[in-house]
Design a protein around this nucleic acid. Sequence first.
DNA 1: TAAAAATCCCCCCTAACGGGTGATTTTTAA
DNA 2: TTAAAAATCACCCGTTAGGGGGGATTTTTA
Lengths: 210, 210
Amino acid sequence: MDKQTITRIVIIEDDETIREGYTYLINHTSAYKVVNAYPSFDAARHKIAKDNPDVIILDIQLPGTSGVDALPALKKLLPHTYIIMLTVYETEKIILDALANGASGYFTKNTPSARIIEAIREVMQGGGPMSPDVAKTVITSLQRNQDSPLTKRETQILELIAKGKDRCQIANELFIEIETVKTHVKNIYIKLNVNSKSEAINIARQNRLI
Amino acid sequence: MDKQTITRIVIIEDDETIREGYTYLINHTSAYKVVNAYPSFDAARHKIAKDNPDVIILDIQLPGTSGVDALPALKKLLPHTYIIMLTVYETEKIILDALANGASGYFTKNTPSARIIEAIREVMQGGGPMSPDVAKTVITSLQRNQDSPLTKRETQILELIAKGKDRCQIANELFIEIETVKTHVKNIYIKLNVNSKSEAINIARQNRLI
DNA sequence: TAAAAATCCCCCCTAACGGGTGATTTTTAA
DNA sequence: TTAAAAATCACCCGTTAGGGGGGATTTTTA
């Protein structure tokens, strides 16, 4: 290693309790130090470069500029800094966006605080730490075929079919008419070149469309 | 800690490349040492007690006595030794058997070699390291309700139904008649107090029967 | 050896499925 | 702004896989 043996951390999190909790926790480990903690990205924006952090712990639900929007800016400002996202949301889209935008780790807020220490270590070693629930979402979607012939709605409906729901249930669940479901199913069959539910499920699973 | 600061490892693995690879890797860490490496359990049987290992890395596909059969014997011989299983198979039954028989960890052979070092550390700390694919299998089955009203066959059939297979496919897959499938399905419905495939799947999923 | 599980067979009925055709509205991208 | 893609809805028609009832034999297990 070089002269810098202490890993420098910056926390951007509006909840004071969480912010100070993490600060306390991290500062009580020998290898890591919180060099600064901000309640928002806007507060951090013009000062964070001087903090020269190795790792940023970034909340998504931030007043002003949100964490997702802050991500690209931070990446531009500090290209070599690892960023660990923190959030209560675990929507597939948000998680994927964050990861695609260069987040190194992703944790939901029900994660045990101590896990974050481990996460910093992992991230410094090039790992991609994430809470199990997030990992599941990510793996599932990563495994999903990128160039699916199916539209979003069709994929959604096929997933419901795969769960054993019938047209009527699907229609109720999606607040659309049975006939619409039928049309989607018909289009799914055409695209997958099949003509039954089970075939569609099998082909879709084989090609990781669902 | 006590005087014994070096963790003693024994490897039982017939593939010479893998065996020597692990030996090399482990011996190049300061905390662990391979005290012996055997190509089969039969070769290890009468000598392993003297090796006094803390951790045994045990292949399942072993010539002579297989790894699964060796497990109980090893446990009896060295009750306090942790055992990490290594295999190409990831059948639910085999994994579960191994774990039920006292394996502490379970890795498929596509696991990065370096991960094994980490696994040894985890296992010594009482953890249960396993590769993601294995973890998934285990979690799924662990979450499965222990006192299911369904018999093995019924559970099996319900799982196939949940996969979208129809009576005919199930019959072919299980080498039984369609009528038998029907009977099983009828019994499933009675036990779960439902009267359709989708209901059965839902109830079963709710109660973690599948 | 008795109970439980697994296997197989026949009859009946219909709800849900799959196919065809056509059209409108909303969203997206160019 | 405009054309294309996606999503929405509707009606007709024929079929079959699914569900219900009843009964019986063989295999496994306790």
